[in-house]
């Protein structure tokens, strides 16, 4: 008996741009810390110091900004302390809140500590990396444990969120390095960071593919939710998040490598554009995921 018409009440889109920015900025902070800390642990030379330092500075700033957007989204922001006192371990917001605070403390100390405190910085990096992963995981699980939402509710959602965080984090470091006054002095580290960014983008594309196939071959509601998302946000997702955010940076990176081989010089414009595209794509992806995800 078709067609079917439904009269229903309004179902609001409750999470707006605040949550989009929270996930986007927190993701950058998590990604930059992981990247900076790993670089700091592996390389102990002046060549990589800029990457380590820039990443360490960006991390706490963006995580704090992200947290501010989360708190301003709350109905009662002045009750936010309850997250830290009335702990519910089955809620990712609860334990994720604690992980975020610990990460802010570690990354802030890591950012301000001078280079001669080598051992302390190493200790902070080693302890901070798992905390950053836990924080990223809490942000991923925030969506992927929502059983009511077929777009979010899948294992690949968490993996996709984590790779997204790392890609945008590295992108932010490359952008800051390319824009810095000493960019020409750090050409080598910019080039290496850009290459790592390229690898992260490839992994990101794979996880995105995994997430899409999970939904395409998933149960009825998963397919339907993906269709809804595609019909409302398909263009912005494929053009903005996928083409601008993932494909364009790869094309630009490939072109830059060819150009460098040909001319023997490294131009900062390519990494600069690449990182801008990655960040734009990352933001669009979060926007479509959060706003579009609530449509079904």
């Amino acid at each position: 008996m078709n067609p079917t018409s439904t009269y229903d009440i309004i179902h609001f889109v409750y999470w707006d741009y605040h949550i989009v920015l929270n996930l986007f900025l927190s993701g950058i902070g998590i990604g930059t810390f992981i990247f900076a800390a790993i670089i700091g642990l592996i390389y102990d030379d002046s060549e990589h110091e800029a990457v380590n330092r820039v990443g360490a500075i960006i991390s706490p700033i963006t995580i704090i900004l992200g947290a501010i957007f989360l708190f301003t989204d709350l109905g009662h922001p002045f009750r936010a302390w309850k997250i830290y006192t009335d702990i519910n371990f089955s809620s990712p917001i609860s334990w994720g809140g604690w992980a975020t605070v610990i990460l802010i403390i570690i990354s802030s100390i890591y950012a301000v500590l001078p280079k001669n405190y080598y051992r302390t910085r190493q200790t902070l990096a080693i302890s901070g990396i798992p905390i950053a992963f836990i924080t990223g995981l809490s942000h991923g699980l925030l969506l992927s444990t929502v059983k009511a939402n077929p777009i979010w509710f899948s294992g690949p959602s968490t993996v996709l969120a984590m790779t997204e965080f790392i890609t945008t984090g590295i992108g932010a470091v490359v952008l800051a390095l390319s824009l810095s006054k000493g960019a020409k002095l750090n050409l080598s580290s910019i080039e290496k960071s850009r290459n790592i960014l390229g690898s992260a983008i490839i992994i990101h594309i794979f996880t995105l593919f995994l997430w899409i196939t999970t939904n395409v071959f998933g149960y009825f509601h998963m397919k339907e939710a993906l269709l809804v998302l595609n019909s409302k946000f398909g263009l912005i997702f494929w053009v903005g998040a996928v083409f601008i955010g993932l494909i364009m940076p790869l094309i630009l990176g490939g072109y830059a490598v060819k150009n460098e081989e040909k001319t023997g010089t490294i131009k900062t414009i390519f990494p600069l554009l690449t990182s801008i595209f990655v960040l734009i794509g990352g933001f669009i992806h979060q926007y479509v995921w959060i706003i579009g995800g609530q449509l079904y």
């Binding site: 409750y14 999470w15 109905g75 009662h76 922001p77 009750r79 309850k82 009335d86 917001i93 009511a148």
Partner: peptide, 13 residues
């Protein structure tokens, strides 16, 4: 005790 995070709203099928 509710902080208005709206996570429960998202969680309700």
């Amino acid at each position: 005790d509710c902080i208005g995070c709206k996570y429960c709203i998202q969680n309700c099928p």
